[in-house]
């Protein structure tokens, strides 16, 4: 009994603190104390160990990197649709969640098929959504916002790593849809702020969106991915 009590209490503490952090920072989940995956530093390869999923190198590795992120997003929205927030949401928000789930699932399925034409895609990743309360509107929307903004920044940062124009075009076809998602989620998550869709907290003074390196992206995403990922062979 006591063990269960403390375990539940501890989980709540983690959920609460992460939720507060998401709300305050939008994106910047601290890597400290969490599993760090995908560090570009060669020294990390050993830490990731033989059981880490290696994204691979070159354009192939970048495609696997995108596939990993789409797996994360697809898994998140699939779970959203199983949760009580979605069940009790208004029609507009239900439709948005259904659309986003379908879009991310389509992206995940596409990458699996496209990568398979040139090699072996990474396996299905195990996710860790223990910090998300799928019954809470604010928890779901804050996490969705963080994931969508993260996805946009990931594709924006990865474009320059690609050698193949066809791959770059596909990334472009997807990133703008992620940006459309991000704007919609931000809008419903902050209905009193008519600038939330492209907030000054995201868009800089030059009117530029965020761009992040794979190491930056994966250090954030790793809080939600249980499977260790080795991104050290990605182009840098």
């Amino acid at each position: 009994m006591n063990y269960s009590f403390f375990k539940v209490k501890n989980d709540r503490e983690v959920v609460r603190s992460r939720r507060v952090f998401l709300r305050k920072s939008g994106l910047g989940l601290a890597a400290a104390g969490l599993l760090i995956a995908g560090c570009a530093d060669d020294d990390m390869t050993g830490l990731n160990g033989d059981d880490a999923v290696d994204l691979g190198s070159g354009d192939f590795g970048v495609l696997n990197y995108a596939y990993a992120l789409e797996q994360l997003e697809a898994a998140f929205y699939a779970q959203v649709l199983q949760g009580s927030y979605y069940a009790s949401a208004n029609a507009e928000e239900r439709q948005i969640m259904e659309d986003l789930e379908a879009h991310e699932r389509a992206h995940r399925e596409f990458f699996a098929a496209a990568i398979a034409t040139v090699g072996t895609p990474i396996p299905a990743l195990e996710v860790d959504f223990s910090s998300i309360d799928f019954g809470s509107r604010s928890s779901v929307l804050s996490t969705a916002q963080a994931f969508e903004d993260l996805g946009v920044s990931a594709y924006n940062g990865a474009g320059r790593l690609l050698q193949n124009a066809d791959y770059l075009l596909v990334a472009g076809k997807i990133v703008s849809v992620e940006a459309r998602h991000a704007a919609a989620i931000r809008s419903i998550n902050a209905p009193s702020d008519p600038t939330a869709f492209a907030s000054d907290m995201i868009i800089d003074a030059n009117g530029l969106d965020l761009a992040r390196t794979p190491a930056e992206v994966l250090s954030i995403a790793s809080a939600f991915i249980a499977t260790p990922i080795n991104a050290s062979n990605l182009p840098g």
Binding site: V152, Y155, N156, G157, G159, R160, G172, V175, S176, V177, E178, A179, R180, H181, A182, A183, A184, S187, F197, A198, I203, G207, L208, D209, L210, A211
Partner: peptide, 17 residues
């Protein structure tokens, strides 16, 4: 290229809104 992509996604945010 990165800057162009950073503008591209801002246009997409605008379009969505």
């Amino acid at each position: 290229l990165t800057a162009a992509l950073q503008i591209h996604s801002v246009e997409a945010r605008h379009a969505s809104e």
